[in-house]
């Protein structure tokens, strides 16, 4: 099965301002997204996420490098037929209603005339806009607009769905609904590629992530691998130790967080330390209540990585 998205040294240079200064929006980006995964594309504002996405969906031409989507060149009409796309804070034709708009989208996507009506109805039901189907889009709330955006992206059953900042402007309920839709897409065997800077969403639904900064990919991989490689220590809760024994194990712990009512909560830096603490606990007939690796959150990781890159730049 070909990769859903594959880029090789993808570079986009814009010329901007009066003196046509060169601005590198994306620089030698190598991205690989497997089929049927949910891929989170992370980066702070202005990192090059939207530019990359625009190249993938054919709205912009790369200055150099290669972009392949579903085994075909990005931007080809045949490729675009297989992609659903939701831009950041999308605008729609306000003078149309949802049925007219989705019908228009379906026609442009090349869906056969006799299937259009059914597809439109299905999409409206999916995003719960069926009650407002004949209301002009002008009167829609922000959440309704975002739902219409999802409907237009999913019409025609695309293999790959590309979403640019889909959670922006949604309330917690809207975000949960959105996550459910994305997970449902994965269950149907679709690939979902989405950019965001809201990390909580990524931790909940993404199988793999890529972090982009200043147009370059600075880290990518499975979320648990990225985070596991940065275990900062272990947190233990043990029971049945008297004061004396607590003093003994304190030597192996980097920190005793609390010790009360027969329960001790401590932090140990490495696995050897954990073994020693456990041996003592067993010896005195104590009990292990819980043992957890202390992982960095994606947010910590993200901020660390960006700080590192910025230091390098200096």
């Amino acid at each position: 099965m070909p990769k859903a998205i594959y880029t090789e040294n993808l570079t986009k240079v814009y010329r901007s301002g009066f003196r046509l200064q060169k601005v590198k929006a994306v620089e030698n980006l190598n991205l690989e997204v497997e089929a049927q995964e949910i891929y989170g594309f992370l980066g702070p504002n202005g990192a090059g996420k939207t530019t990359t996405i625009k190249i993938l969906v054919g709205l912009a031409q790369p200055t150099s490098g290669k972009a392949v989507v579903l085994g075909r060149p990005a931007g080809d009409l045949g490729t675009k037929k297989l992609i659903g796309f939701l831009p950041e804070s999308p605008y729609f034709y306000e003078y149309l209603n949802a049925v007219e708009y989705l019908t228009f989208c379906a026609q442009l996507s090349g869906i056969e005339q006799n299937r259009i009506k059914k597809q439109v109805e299905k999409m409206l039901a999916l995003v719960r806009l069926d009650k407002f189907a004949h209301m002009p889009i002008r009167g829609y709330s922000r959440g309704m607009l975002q739902r219409l955006g999802i409907a237009q992206a999913l019409i025609g059953d695309p293999e790959l769905v590309i979403l640019d900042e889909p959670m922006g402007g949604l309330d917690p309920i809207g975000r949960r609904e959105f996550r459910d839709i994305i997970l449902a897409l994965k269950a149907q065997g679709k690939t979902v590629f989405f950019s965001t800077h809201i990390l909580a969403d990524v931790e909940l639904i993404c199988s793999r992530v890529g972090i982009i900064l200043n147009g370059r990919l600075i880290n990518s991989g499975r979320l648990d691998e990225i985070l596991l490689s940065e275990i900062e220590g272990f947190e233990l809760i043990v029971k049945g130790l008297d004061r004396k024994m607590v003093k003994v194990i304190e030597r192996f712990a980097s920190k005793v967080i609390s010790s009360a009512e027969n329960e001790t909560y401590l932090e140990v830096t490495d696995e050897a330390g954990v073994e020693r603490v456990l041996a003592i606990v067993r010896e005195v007939g104590g009990k292990l209540i819980s043992l957890q690796p202390k992982k960095k959150t994606l947010e910590d990781h993200f901020i660390d990585q960006i700080a590192k890159e910025r230091l390098k730049a200096i």
């Binding site: 969906v57 054919g58 709205l59 009409l77 045949g78 675009k80 037929k81 992609i83 796309f85 831009p87 999308p90 605008y91 729609f92 034709y93 989208c105 442009l108 996507s109 090349g110 237009q152």
Partner: peptide, 14 residues
């Protein structure tokens, strides 16, 4: 300007 063109040209339309 209104970026409605994104949703046209990202479809198989030249």
């Amino acid at each position: 300007e209104k970026r409605t063109i994104y949703l046209i040209l990202s479809r198989p339309v030249s």
